[in-house]
Simulated assay, not measured.
Amino acid sequence: MRDRQKAERAGRVGETAAAWWLRLKGWRILARRVRTPAGEVDLIAKRGNLVAFVEVKRRKTGEELDFAIDHFRLTRVAKAAESLAHRYLEPGDDMRVDVILIAPGRALRHIENAWIG
């Protein structure tokens, strides 16, 4: 149980770092940790007429980041994004699924439009 709590805490730290990074890039954070029956979206951000549903992965090493995201996880986020779109998109808005990868000592990596489904 202790490891699970540590992982949860580390995930929240990663999400906070990702949210600040997005803000610095001109994004407005609309929501954090939104749960749906299809899955969870870590961050929902908007810049201009683009809404990004963002999956954040934080790992202990950069090497672990290579295995942090896969088709299954992206599919889950995409399904959750589809179910949430009506709440966050305005007429004329576009949406996409992004991934932010974080590891200590490494530059944050933002993968735009990670889901093409």
Rank of each mutant, 00 (worst) to 15 (best):
W115L: 02
G92A: 12
A17D: 11
V54N: 04
T61P: 05
A80F: 00
N113Y: 03
G14Y: 13
P104E: 09
G105F: 12
G14E: 06
P104S: 10
D42C: 08
R12M: 14
A78T: 01
L74D: 05
L30N: 04
A68H: 03
K79L: 14
F67K: 12
V13L: 14
D93Y: 13
D94C: 11
R32Y: 02
R58S: 14
Q5A: 14
L43D: 04
I44E: 00
R23D: 01
H110V: 13
I111P: 01
G62L: 09
V99L: 00
A80Y: 00
M1C: 08
W27K: 08
W115S: 02
D66S: 12
R76L: 11
V34C: 04
Y88W: 13
G48Q: 06
R2M: 06
A80M: 03
L84P: 00
R32W: 01
L84D: 03
R109Q: 15
T75L: 00
I102Y: 10
K25Q: 15
A18I: 09
R33K: 11
E40F: 09
F67E: 08
V97T: 01
I116W: 10
A7P: 00
I69Q: 04
V97Q: 09
H110Q: 09
A107V: 14
L24H: 10
A52C: 11
H86T: 08
L50Q: 07
R59E: 13
M95S: 15
S83H: 09
L65K: 10
L65S: 09
N113F: 05
K57R: 14
G26D: 09
R76S: 13
G48D: 02
